[in-house]
Design a protein around this nucleic acid. Structure first.
Lengths: 158, 158
DNA sequence: CCTTATTATCTCAGTAATGAGAGATTCGAT
DNA sequence: ATCGAATCTCTCATTACTGAGATAATAAGG
């Protein structure tokens, strides 16, 4: 969209952006691998954990709410909630106001599992981030937040 | 690994790390969606582009070298190179020194495609990152590089 | 030479999704 | 009330992988 600032194939601004692109992808992968490794012994994937965490901290949510929160497709949320339901961790509940909609809610077993693994997993994420000081983490988070919001806004508007 | 610094389930350090975890994931997704949208009209996925870019800038590479560079499984690199080969963009070449190994190399058609889309895609990445100034991008990249290296090192050692 | 370990790719079954479209229901404007 | 558009979930075919193991070739040590 923006006009190139020079005729050279990769000018300085582009080179900087490409570098950020690469380290962003690698950092997320490295962190993701560590945090996934923490969940694995419990037989829970990162995505599944994200769903359960949302229900754990917010209580029952409509499937669509969970879907938007964890950023999966409509088919994906059905698939994931099915899997968690089969394992007895989550259940669907009717929505009294809207008969199209369903709530997802943690079962007693799901709550018990979250009580067990949530603090441990939060600590695993803290450890995965410990390559940066807390001040640096805050700085990185502020930068990434702006980056993410700007990129998302631009996608939406186009 | 590290002992918790307080008995509270989510202390300040953990809260900071969790926040970074979330914005990291969201920033990468937002940027990824924009850059993917740029490639889509050309029928090339991000992963496929990553392979072709490696071959474009470095010349023929052993499959294993590409695999480590773009971080996919051994089965994945076979699958991806197969697909690119079927479309006539990449070809396998014998390795004279090692008869187990194969080179992946861009075909003439692959080179032509890269010449067309590479500068455009680099510009799309630059635009996707333009929510941050160039100085901020450098700062973010430096932080993320340290974060990624530390996290990867810790995964390896465990 | 052998033998054993290592390395490089490929095969194959399985998994975690996506995305288009179908049904059912609700909402909004007449 | 009724029609049409919008909304919520689910179904299904398809995709892009992963990971374990097979196969083949090389390397290293005795």
């Amino acid at each position: 969209m923006t006009a190139p600032r020079s005729t050279k194939a990769t000018d300085a601004a582009t080179a900087t952006a490409l570098k950020l692109y690469v380290v962003l992808a690698r950092a997320q992968r490295a962190v993701g691998e560590r945090t996934q490794a923490d969940l694995e012994p419990h037989g829970v994937s990162s995505t599944e954990f994200a769903i359960m965490e949302a229900l754990y901290t917010k209580g029952p949510l409509l499937l669509g709410e969970v879907q938007r929160k964890i950023l999966v497709s409509s088919g994906g949320i059905t698939f994931l909630v099915d899997k968690l339901t089969d394992r007895g961790l989550v259940e669907r509940q009717m929505c009294p106001n809207d008969r199209r909609a369903r709530y997802a809610a943690l079962t007693r077993k799901g709550v018990a599992l979250m009580r067990e693994i949530f603090p441990r997993h939060a600590a695993a994420i803290r450890d995965a981030m410990s390559g940066l000081s807390q001040a640096e983490q805050k700085e990185a988070a502020a930068l990434l937040k702006r980056l993410g919001l700007a990129a998302a806004a631009a996608t939406g508007e186009a």
